[in-house]
Design a protein around this nucleic acid. Sequence first.
DNA 1: AACACCTTGTTACTTGCGGTAACAAGAGTC
DNA 2: GACTCTTGTTACCGCAAGTAACAAGGTGTT
Lengths: 214, 214
Amino acid sequence: MDTTERTEQALAAERRKRELLEAADRVVLRDGPGASMNAIAAEAGITKPILYRHFGDKGGLYAALAKRHTDALLASLRAALDAPSERRARVESTLDTYLAAIEGAPQVYRFLMHPAESASPGEQGFDVGRHSAPLLRRLGEELAQVIAERVDLGSDSERLARVWGHGIVGMMHAAGDWWLGERPCSRAELVRDLADLLWGRLAAAGDREGGPGF
Amino acid sequence: MDTTERTEQALAAERRKRELLEAADRVVLRDGPGASMNAIAAEAGITKPILYRHFGDKGGLYAALAKRHTDALLASLRAALDAPSERRARVESTLDTYLAAIEGAPQVYRFLMHPAESASPGEQGFDVGRHSAPLLRRLGEELAQVIAERVDLGSDSERLARVWGHGIVGMMHAAGDWWLGERPCSRAELVRDLADLLWGRLAAAGDREGGPGF
DNA sequence: AACACCTTGTTACTTGCGGTAACAAGAGTC
DNA sequence: GACTCTTGTTACCGCAAGTAACAAGGTGTT
């Protein structure tokens, strides 16, 4: 058992794992998040126990699958977030990047965020809540870090940045989710409206008929 | 089959339904959201088919259960939202009401929002995504209506109000979720920070060391 | 050559859940 | 007394997660 062989086998195992993940990806994107382990195994040309050997349980497969997409999304968002432009432009381009991503691959989005929907009834598919949260959490922390690095907040800046990071990510997520379902306006409009909200336009707007007491 | 009897029976059925819901509530809050229909039936002192007669399927039971809590939360939020005070005070008190609610009954909150977590492994319990969304959607629409009614936005005010409604609700939800898990600060601080965010403090803050190009 | 070992793969099983049929029993109605 | 309606039961089906237990091929050791 020399080391070169060990690594070779390990590499082979990782390749295999990637292949399995790609098969799982195809099935999940085709059949929705309720895809059964049997179906995934069939698509990969093997049988269930092998999946379990590689991923432990269904949650493991899900997590591995989610990590791929999550990492890809995070990478593209980081690019927008780290651009050397004005803050408003950065915010708008980040929002737009996110919305373009979920618009371009809504199946992936629904898998990551709402795995229990969009499939034949009788679903009990992948557990959702346990895995959709991590993506949003990571996004929130990432944004918090960028804010803390680049924006001059007084004391308590770390806490403030984290609150805002998670809050903004939540705003983006909820608005994007609603928008993706109803398509009430164009992407550019949504981006502008959300940026306006962050820029305090709600606070600046006047009261309607009847004054502040109404 | 005179009408009085009909209504009496209908009333009895509704009472029964309420009893069943209360039993389901106890079980779900005790065993987590993965509680099986069998367990719920046992808690109610009956057997499964009766549950199915009353609620159709598990989703129906879930929906009925969620509706109770959702309605209660919405009612208390409406009160804060409709108070005759300044806008900032209203926003803060609404945020605080929401956070106090999820802080006071985190089990209920987790059931409504993350039903797949917090139970013994092997969960495939209630479908979550399909039902947590409605609460947030309703909240968003509700807030949108209040904004549209009370805030003077120029043209396109309806769309703007809806975008902001859903966005703000998402912000509140994500920040609350993160805060409930990590408890990084007091409730009052969180409320103030979120209100500051909505008041444009992020946009107003200066860049850190290196100017806008950095 | 024969042995042990590890990896990959299989078939066949158990367990547990959602959901449903089929049947039993009490209570009012004609 | 027969009819029907509601409430309840037991016993079952189907299906998906997860788990032995076993088969076969390559590899190193003696």
